[in-house]
Design a protein around this nucleic acid. Structure first.
Length: 344
DNA sequence: TCTGCAATAT
DNA sequence: GATATTGCAG
């Protein structure tokens, strides 16, 4: 009997812990509820369910029943697991195309307007501007996102507090440097693909197709300029000397995409959805380069490896407070980058 | 206004 | 040296 009672307490405690964990998760999701409406819903449901389980168990205990363990493991956990699975799918960066299509076709205006009211523009855009590594576990991703937001806030307030008026003036003069995250770049590629390639698409068209809050024509224009520069004829002074970091590229709908991304299905949605929009993607890597009017660069800049633009540096203790999120552009991978074509 | 190129800043 | 921002001409 005593054993039963202690078992009940233990199970109730476990339920409580579940709820706590779910609440924590919910807080994280709330910040990004626009991208994770389903997750939010599921977590809410899970929390409610667990709470109900606890109260029901409490009333059941009057009759000496200890079903919490069954309910905990048989109900709470599956809900949580289900939530995690769905969350995983919904936050995956691999289904950018779905996202893309959704925004074009099945966009829910009500949901959108609600979300727009709930969140400021900078917060919405920061999700794309500073996406965490899609390869990282979801927990770390959301942590990264939170850190990103926090660090941005911190840096903003710090700047406004301590810096001289001259610097402040300069900051207001020149907009803050922003990085193109891998997801944002994928959107960019997606738009390019829809528009028929980098030399046909215009910045405005791309921006409209990307549908990213806060993204300006200038930024797209700049990125497009860089992209076009990279897709030009490669420099003869940069032979492929077997560098292990050398990345091969394949043509996807007239776009140069890292082969790894292409082969692993991590590239633009057009490439992964095998034939919805692309026409030249079924070819293998062999012979593709020759098919292009302008051969691909022998090496792609490290940034175009589609690595996330966020560098997360963890301190020795790997505590979240020590995580530093920063734009990686000036100090990116030091791999050889003789890919730029010297202009005429 | 939009675009592309080039200079400049980071 | 790479990338993002800004300026400017067409």
């Amino acid at each position: 009997m005593i054993k039963k009672l202690s078992n009940m307490d233990y199970n109730r405690e476990r339920c409580g812990q579940y709820i706590e964990a779910l609440e924590e998760e919910r807080r994280k999701i709330l910040v990004f509820q626009r991208e994770l409406p389903l997750c939010l819903n599921l977590v809410n449901q899970a929390i409610e369910r667990c709470r109900r389980d606890i109260t029901e168990t409490a009333t059941d205990n009057v009759y000496g029943q200890s079903e919490c363990s069954e309910q905990t493991t048989g109900q709470c956990t599956p809900v949580l697991e289900q939530f995690l699975t769905i969350k995983d799918a919904s936050t995956s960066n691999d289904d950018v195309e779905e996202e893309f299509e959704d925004e074009h076709g099945n966009h829910d205006p009500d949901k959108d307007s609600d979300d727009n009211n709930m969140k400021s523009d900078w917060l919405k855009s920061v999700q794309l501007w500073n996406q965490p590594d899609p390869l990282l576990p979801k927990e770390e991703q959301s942590q990264q996102m939170m850190e990103t937001v926090v660090k941005r806030d911190e840096s903003m307030s710090k700047d406004s507090m301590s810096n001289s008026s001259e610097r402040r003036k300069r900051e207001t003069e020149r907009k803050q440097r922003r990085c193109w995250s891998s997801q944002l770049h994928r959107r960019f590629l997606n738009a390019l693909q829809h528009l028929g390639g980098p030399h046909v698409a215009t910045p405005k068209q791309i921006r409209e197709l990307m549908k990213v809050d806060g993204l300006t024509n200038d930024e797209v224009k700049s990125h497009l300029q860089k992209y076009r520069l990279h897709t030009r004829r490669p420099s003869q002074t940069a032979p492929n000397n077997g560098n292990s970091q050398t990345q091969h590229f394949v043509v996807v709908g007239g776009l140069w995409v890292p082969q790894s991304d292409y082969s692993t299905g991590k590239t633009t949605g057009g490439a992964t959805t095998s034939g919805t929009t692309m026409t030249t993607t079924t070819t293998t890597t062999n012979g593709i380069y020759g098919a292009m009017a302008a051969p691909p660069p022998p090496q792609w800049p490290s940034h175009f490896n589609f690595t996330p633009s966020i560098n997360v540096e963890e301190g020795s203790g790997s505590h979240s407070e020590e995580v530093v999120v920063r734009c990686s552009s000036p100090a990116m991978s030091s791999s050889t980058r003789n890919y730029y074509v010297t202009k005429n």
